[in-house]
């Protein structure tokens, strides 16, 4: 406590002799030297003003971009969770028995219902900027796909996606969930 007080006192006291000194210095200066000093000061202020102007401009640009990003990607976390449901729905549709002639009417209706629900769900997501893309057959792209395994393939060139466990999901162009894929490597095709 005492040390703090002492520090405060010191801080209060020090400026007084400094100002006095500065005043005597100014008085002692020749007009030319005084002009030079002021010019240097003006230059310094000008520099600072320009910097702060530029800073302001940067700040405005950044604020605009931040608002735009916040608007476009506010639902990113929510979208990432929701697409999981879409994926499950897709898996559900895929696991239904294949359509056969004379199958039970109930199964047909069930399949129809599942498929239309999936279609409408994907439509809703798309309207809100969430798009789904199936990468099978494309060249592996680390910006969109997550490589889970490599597998020899006789039909595909090395580096081609031969199997996708999940699709790629994007929100307004930004990746929210990469596709989990199996990539071709070392098959007969590669040796050709």
């Amino acid at each position: 406590m005492t040390t703090e007080n002492a520090l405060h006192d010191e801080q209060k006291e020090t400026p007084i002799p400094e100002t006095a000194e500065a005043q005597t210095e100014t008085a002692a200066l020749s007009p030319e030297a005084r002009i030079a000093e002021l010019e240097a000061q003006v230059e310094d202020f000008r520099d600072r003003w320009m910097r702060s102007e530029a800073e302001m401009q940067n700040f405005r640009t950044r604020a605009k971009r931040d608002v735009e990003d916040a608007r476009q990607y506010a639902v990113q976390k929510f979208a990432k969770d929701v697409v999981e449901a879409a994926e499950n729905l897709q898996r559900g549709v895929a696991s239904l028995p294949a359509q056969t002639e004379g199958e039970d009417g109930l199964v047909s209706k069930l399949r129809e219902g599942f498929e239309s629900t999936e279609r409408s769900f994907l439509g809703i997501l798309e309207r809100n900027g969430v798009t789904c893309q199936h990468p099978v057959g494309e060249v592996f792209d680390a910006n969109l796909h997550q490589a889970m395994a490599e597998q020899p393939s006789d039909e595909h060139a090395d580096g081609t996606v031969i199997q996708a466990w999940t699709p790629t999901w994007t929100l307004n162009g930004r990746l929210i969930k990469p596709a989990m894929v199996v990539v071709a490597k070392g098959g007969n095709k590669a040796a050709e």
């Binding site: 592996f140 680390a142 910006n143 796909h145 997550q146 490589a147 889970m148 395994a149 490599e150 580096g159 990469p178 990539v183 490597k185």
Partner: peptide, 12 residues
């Protein structure tokens, strides 16, 4: 490749 994309292709 740097960051996320480097990590995604690590297996390959």
């Amino acid at each position: 490749l740097v960051g996320q994309s480097a990590k995604r292709q690590a297996v390959t």
